[in-house]
Amino acid sequence: MAIELRDVRFAYAEAPDKPVLDIPHWSVPRGEQVFLHGPSGTGKSTLLNVISGLLPATQGEVLVMGQALNALSTRQRDRFRANHIGYVFQQFNLIPYLDAVDNVQLASHFSNQRQSAPSREEITGLLSTLKLTAADWEMPTGRLSIGQQQRVAIARALINQPELLIADEPTSSLDQVNRDNFMAVLLSMAEQSGITLLFVSHDMSLSGFFKRVDAMTELGAREAAH
């Protein structure tokens, strides 16, 4: 399993009696592409933070790639996240004053997944695959269009060859054309590398891109469909 949650509860310290998450069991097999939808306020972001190890579950077991996150120290979780999980957000995916190449390189800086730091050629190759031209590589990413920024974000998320890619509303700032472009690139790259993709959005129109569609509201109520 790429992700497995068992009896996971999470409540913020300010409101310990109101669990934001209460999931008896939910899992995603390796290599699967899952669309998880739900209106805002249903705990999507919290769930992603728990899976990525930024927030420790209040109760229960969170396994990512077979590794129980509870068993790791904060430092180890940071390292685990850098090594195994790629992340794409709706916005603020990049350090705006670094150029695309540096942003991608920075992501590899915290990972020891690879033997050596990725070469410039490797990075620019990846950026080219994502339809970013040489002119875009060396300007501060803050000056790129949102569509371009999101594609750099994919490169940044993939550079460490993660097993799991989490996308959190990555298309919400994009227009129709850019959105379709982005989805096509993201899905094909995930497929090529056999990466498990957890795609979270409130936009049901995207569900057509996925074979498996889960509703956030149902996670707490039932056993996962698979």
């Binding site: 390292r79 996240r81 090594n83 603020f92 990049l94 920075l106 992501a107 915290f110």
Partner: peptide
């Protein structure tokens, strides 16, 4: 946002 991002890509708080 920058701090959050650095955390997500694996930067420890000490960094």
């Amino acid at each position: 946002n920058e701090i959050q991002l650095l955390r997500v890509i694996g930067a420890p708080p000490a960094f």
